[in-house]
Design a protein around this nucleic acid. Structure first.
Lengths: 204, 204
DNA sequence: GCCTAGAAGCAACAAAATTGCATTAAAGTG
DNA sequence: CACTTTAATGCAATTTTGTTGCTTCTAGGC
């Protein structure tokens, strides 16, 4: 956007607000561009020119809502921080509105920019947790490992499998990722007895 | 579909064929329902009534093309079979047409049926590999573990991260999953030295 | 305080989606 | 095998959405 201030900004905010309101009122499926335009006090052509179509507009709104509002909590240890973060992540993403936002973000995203942004949000949060743990002197796994082992399975299930997901599953994934990291560090952990066995089937 | 034979079946096949042809000729973005209807020798209202809109029609076609045409190859060992399957899976899914089909399948899928079908295809293939290995007497990991460790990371990267993916990454994921399974079986493997360390960043 | 150019408004137009009604042809029934 | 039933399609009129050329407005640069 070459002109981020003033009227353009007001229009953008007004349109986004209209989308959020109308999604709540009439539902996503009944949403149309003219409807959004009317509510936002804007002509439809403005929306078509700026966003292209409804999907890209929804994608825009979705990415904004998927941005984490706060940094991950500091609970004093890597394991506790990761557990808490993963649980919250799963909670938010697996909730009906979360699922809808994820779908919308992927949907109207020809070049993958918005999807990449979502991934970046998760990576930033994980990085923050890991950086804190490193500063405490704890051995830390790589961000990529956590994305592959924790984020990816959660997102895969949300997108491709109908079943429910609960906090226990998130903790399990974290356990396995941390376990892997401990092996990498050379110490076979003794506390967690056989975390592998319990990678569970979805409930459906 | 309460009436799967005769004319309905012909219309469905004709419409699917029209979509496949036209996607190749004019590209997915230029595709419209009336265009498909004309090519298929059908009135647009038929398509609207049966599929709802273009997205759901594309989703239908995409799922059909994502169905594996052949069972996984038998190369004589679990590891070889999994490697080969994962490489092929990644290849097909990460290719431009594969990515397009995945997106389409997810896109026009209000209730998640089509996405679930995609997941089921992968699970079936993995099950076949595992069943064969079990019959050979090899210790086998659970299907769920392989989905979380191999399928999910691949799909996550395809959907959310722009970078390239290559066969080596697929093998790495298999290595880690099998390694996990070996630990579960009680034998700390000696061959694979530290597979964890190499979980790599995408190229982008 | 002027220019300039990107962004929005407006209106006419083109294309698409929706819908009621008539028609066709699978599938069920005796 | 005729007959009935009814889902599915065809057709056409209508509504709604999407597109485009042109004008007007206004934020940002001088």
């Amino acid at each position: 956007m070459a002109r981020p201030g003033g009227r353009s900004a007001r229009v953008q905010e007004s349109v986004h607000a209209a989308v959020r309101e109308l999604v709540g009122e009439v539902g996503r499926d009944a949403l149309t561009v003219p409807m959004v335009a009317t509510r936002a006090g804007v002509t439809p052509s403005t929306i078509y020119r700026r966003w292209g179509d409804l999907q890209q507009l929804l994608s825009d709104v979705a990415v904004e809502r998927l941005r984490p509002e706060t940094g991950p909590a500091d609970l004093g240890s890597l394991r506790a921080d990761l557990d808490a973060w993963a649980e919250q992540f799963l909670d938010e993403m697996a909730s009906p509105p979360g699922r809808a936002y994820i779908r919308d973000a992927l949907l109207g995203d020809p070049d993958g920019t918005n999807a990449g942004q979502c991934s970046a949000y998760a990576a930033e949060q994980i990085d923050a947790v890991l950086a804190r743990a490193a500063q405490r002197g704890e051995p830390v796994p790589e961000t990529e490992l956590l994305i592959d082992r924790v984020v990816a399975p959660i997102m895969y299930r949300i997108l491709f499998r109908p079943g429910r997901l609960d906090a226990a599953y998130a903790r399990e994934l974290v356990t396995n990722a941390v376990y892997a990291q401990q092996i990498e560090a050379g110490a076979r952990p003794t506390q967690a007895a056989d975390p592998w066995r319990s990678e569970r089937k979805p409930d459906n």
